[in-house]
Write a protein that binds this DNA or RNA. Structure first.
Lengths: 206, 206
DNA sequence: CGTCGCATTGATATCGCTCAAATCCGGTGG
DNA sequence: CCACCGGATTTGAGCGATATCAATGCGACG
């Protein structure tokens, strides 16, 4: 579902290039802008007390980033370009007035937020699962387009996937290997394929 | 920030009581209605393959429930009343037309979604932390109103909290006990208080 | 009372984290 | 073209935090 930047927004935004690792904003900065990713990848991070980075969100081409800025006086976490990226920078007051005046855009924005919310809840669901294998299965099933094809093309490295799943990359490698040995999944390059195991005659219990 | 049900919606909704354990909808049902919780508690659950229930979302008095129904032809998970509850049932077509026609309401709805999204991301952040103690600290810090008071009044049982944190209730009990013994937190009835330990002269490292 | 669910604590098993090391691969500079 | 480098990928070994299984007390409720 990658978006085009809605036409009315194009007039109000300016394009900007960011280098890999460059910060878009820091936690506590006045929230002035919302972003739209044309290319590259940006991430929202918050650093835990031990200095580890916690990945809050990844935005890829065709997605908005830091939408919450509209509702919020300050950024609540750090935004960085994880790869060299081209972004549309949208001053939030323009966005706000557009939402007030453009019926169609307002609807589009609503639907965008709803989808993001659903994606976030899916991720919550995934993180609540115990066991790396379970999370992998959930990931393939829920990221696969519309749950029809149990197959995902990975967008980044396996290390990135590990972060997404909330496990160490070692645990992910091992689990993938053993699932593959068990014939439960296949890997072709950067594509993960979940073979539905016939198994598991379930008892639909209350 | 518990909401009152926005006035224009009151005319389009009907009140309904649900018993504890009663289902509002099942996964796959045509998505016809959005809900607003007046009292009680409702939950979105999806059942994993082992029959365990995965908690996707809890809605408490003053919150909307199943907002995604507006965007979606079918419910994607189960909705049940976890306690006896009084809900406003809002046909989604009414909601949609209200969003199209009532500027103020549309804005309110946007801001609602944005806040929910932020809450969901906070929960993701929490689940990505390793160690029960870390999650508890994060929970107290982020649920505490506006991060000013490091203190939370638990809305449900500790078992519920354990689910929220993605750990077993045993692990939660133990960790709470040891944190209390260490003087890091206090418990008064159903209130958790995080004492900020002076410790941790941090080195702000890149 | 009897039962049910929460709270609590103990014992044990196990999964995933941590630390380590080897390989592979693409890119870069000589 | 080759040597070298950094990051991703793998695999190994060991340990510790959590899950799991169990038992008990306790309060609410019928």
């Amino acid at each position: 579902m990658p978006f085009e930047l809605p036409e009315p927004l194009q007039r109000f935004s300016r394009l900007q290039n960011y280098d890999r690792g460059e910060m878009l904003f820091r936690r506590g900065d006045p929230a002035r802008c919302v972003f739209f990713v044309h290319s590259g990848e940006v991430r929202m991070l918050r650093s835990g007390r031990a200095g580890e980075d916690i990945l809050l969100h990844r935005a890829r081409p065709g997605e908005f980033f830091a939408e919450a800025a509209v509702e919020c006086p300050r950024y609540l976490c750090d935004g960085i370009a994880f790869q060299a990226s081209t972004l549309a920078v949208i001053p939030k007051n323009h966005l706000a007035s557009l939402m007030d005046n453009d019926r169609g855009f307002s609807r589009q924005w609503n639907s965008l937020l709803t989808r993001e919310l659903r994606a976030a809840r899916a991720r919550i669901e995934r993180l609540a699962l115990s066991g790396v294998a379970e999370r992998i299965r959930h990931f393939i099933a829920s990221e696969g387009r519309d749950s029809s094809s149990a197959e995902v093309v990975l967008s980044g490295s396996l290390k990135d996937l590990a972060r997404d799943l909330g496990v160490t990359h070692e645990a992910l490698y091992r689990t993938l290997a053993s699932m593959q040995k068990a014939g439960e999944i296949d890997r072709k390059g950067s594509t993960l394929i979940l073979k539905l195991v016939p198994a598991q005659r379930g008892k639909p219990r209350p």
